[in-house]
Structure formats: structure tokens, C-alpha cells
Simulated assay, not measured.
Amino acid sequence: MSQPSSGDNLWCRRFRPAPNPAARLVCLPHAGGSAPFFLPVAAALSPQVDVVSIQYPGRQDRRAEAPLDDLSVLVDGIYQVLRRQPELPLTLFGHSMGAVIGFELARRFEADGVRPVRLMASGRRAPGTHRDESTFGSDDAIMAEVRELSGTAASLLSDDEMMRAALPALRADYRAVETYRCGPDVAVDTPITVLTGDSDPKTTLDEAKAWDRHTRGGCDLRVFTGGHFFISERAAEVMQVLEDHFREQGARHAG
């Protein structure tokens, strides 16, 4: 493992630094999302867990950087930074686009001889499933979808100027995830927990169950009441899943 660099902090945001953590949780935002989306997770799990929220290029304080519209390039950048972090048992937690990024990160870690403890794949159909989508081709289509999914603060949604300022990152993210392809038989050894909303227009129950084909380590499914952003609507229930995971992980480590 190489040493962390000063530039790693551009990617890795620790809102509640943990001086002596027992485990690490890497949080991966949705398309158009940013690291602070997971601030409540950091508040709930620190200091026992080193909660690292990933900030993608092209948004907030990284707005001057060009957003990445190739998912493989984005994953490679995140992976190189994570491999330089001090070693800890690693759990990956991604929502929507972040779930796909988490899966690809697990593949890269395993190829390097490191198996994450678990992937928490939230709000996203299995990697091998495909829908014919091309939202990134139209700014109006992107804005309409974001408003429909209600994944951004209401004040931003109602501010057309702010929405258009966010469009370069949104456009790149949508292109990255909508052009991503994965074979139906590509699998990791990392266990996967799938979290999905029962009325999510982006993921049917069958598409969520299909994650089972992508792991040799076991897959369990948690269904929540809500749409695409059930993760916010049912935050306490989602947090309980995370807390139970780290409690079990700690018990196993102690044993």
C-alpha cells in the first residue's frame, strides 16, 4: 500500500474523524450527489467506524474540475485513493450510481487480493440488468428526472439557475452510469446486502433480486417503503441496517 497523498482529501471526506476506528465505511453518492449526503451516517457511526464519504470531481468545492463521464475512469480514481488509506476492514455503501461504483470497487479490491467485508448496494438494479436509457442526451430530460426522483434539496429543485449550474456534473454522472455495461455472470466474493424501495421507478423488485447473481459470498435483500430516495425517507431504518452490520462485524472480530 502506498502512502496517502495530500490530494486524497479531495476525494475522501471525513465529517466525523475517528482517531482509532475498528472498521471503515466508504460511502458512494448517487448521480448528481455529493459527499455531504452521507453526513448523518458519519454522525451516527463515529468514532467506532471511519466513515469516508467520496466527493466526485465537478461538484461543490471540486466544481472547477471536469466531471468524469466514464464510470471505469471514475472508479479507478477512487480505487487508487482508497488503496492509499490505512488498512481497516472495509465495507462499501453506495446509493444508485454509487451502488454500481461500489460493485466495481469490490472487483478491483479482490483483484488486488483484498476482499471487502460487504457491499451495501442501495437503490440500484443489478449490474447485469439493462434498461435502454439515454437521459444524459438532454438537459431538460435530466432536470425532469431529478425533479421526479426528488433526490435534491427542494430549494435547489425550485431554482432553475442552480439546477442548470449543477447540470455538467449531472450530465457526466448520467452518461457514466447509463453507458456502463456488466455481464450477467460477473461476480465477486464479497457478500452483498441489497436495499431497495418498494415503489422505486428505477429498480423493480426482480431487478434488485438479480444482485444475487453477482456474488459468490451470499446476498440478502432489504425492502423499504418508499421511492428511489427511500434512503432519506427511511433514514432511521437504513441506519439500523448499518449499525447491525458493524455490531455483527465487531462481534466476529472479538470472537
Rank of each mutant, 00 (worst) to 15 (best):
N9K: 13
A208R: 06
A236V: 15
Y174S: 07
D189R: 11
P57Y: 05
V117L: 11
S158N: 13
A99P: 06
A64M: 14
R222W: 00
G255Q: 15
Y56N: 05
V117Y: 02
C182A: 14
V146Q: 08
L68Q: 07
L195T: 03
R115C: 10
F136R: 02
I54Q: 01
L10N: 14
L92I: 06
S232I: 12
R63A: 14
A154I: 02
V223H: 00
G250I: 02
P168M: 06
R222N: 06
G151N: 04
P89G: 13
A23R: 05
S199L: 01
A43G: 08
W11M: 05
P184A: 14
Q48D: 08
R107M: 04
M143P: 00
V223S: 11
Y56M: 12
E243M: 14
C219T: 05
F93L: 12
L28F: 09
R252K: 10
E207N: 10
F224W: 08
S155Q: 12
T135F: 14
D212K: 04
R118P: 00
Q240L: 15
P116R: 09
D206G: 02
G32M: 12
H95D: 05
R108P: 02
S96M: 10
H130M: 06
C27G: 10
L170N: 07
L221T: 01
R147H: 05
L90T: 15
I101F: 03
E148L: 11
F230I: 09
A35R: 11
L25M: 12
H253V: 08
T196P: 00
A166H: 07
L88I: 09
T203I: 01
F93N: 11
K202E: 09
R83D: 06
V52P: 05
M239E: 08
L195H: 01
A141V: 03
R213F: 02
S2G: 13
G227W: 07
A23G: 04
Q55L: 08
L205M: 12
F246W: 09
K209Y: 02
D70L: 05
R24D: 08
Q80W: 01
A43Y: 02
L90G: 08
A99M: 11
D76M: 02
P67Q: 08
A172E: 01
G218M: 06
G226K: 14
Q80E: 14
C27D: 09
P191W: 06
A154T: 07
D8A: 05
T203K: 03
S2Y: 02
D69V: 03
F229K: 07
A236Y: 07
E237T: 12
A64E: 13
E133I: 08
T196K: 05
A126S: 06
A187R: 10
V100A: 13
D132H: 11
S34R: 14
V41D: 04
V73I: 08
R115W: 01
A169D: 00
T129N: 03
T135V: 15
K202P: 00
D76L: 04
Y79S: 10
D244N: 15
R14G: 07
L88M: 09
R164D: 14
S199E: 01
L157Y: 01
F230L: 10
G128D: 03
P40R: 13
G197R: 13
A35I: 12
G7D: 15
R131V: 03
L88S: 08
P47W: 10
R24C: 12
Y56G: 03
A144G: 04
C27P: 07
I54A: 03
A251P: 00
W211S: 03
R83H: 07
D185G: 01
R181A: 15
A42Q: 03
S34M: 06
P201N: 08
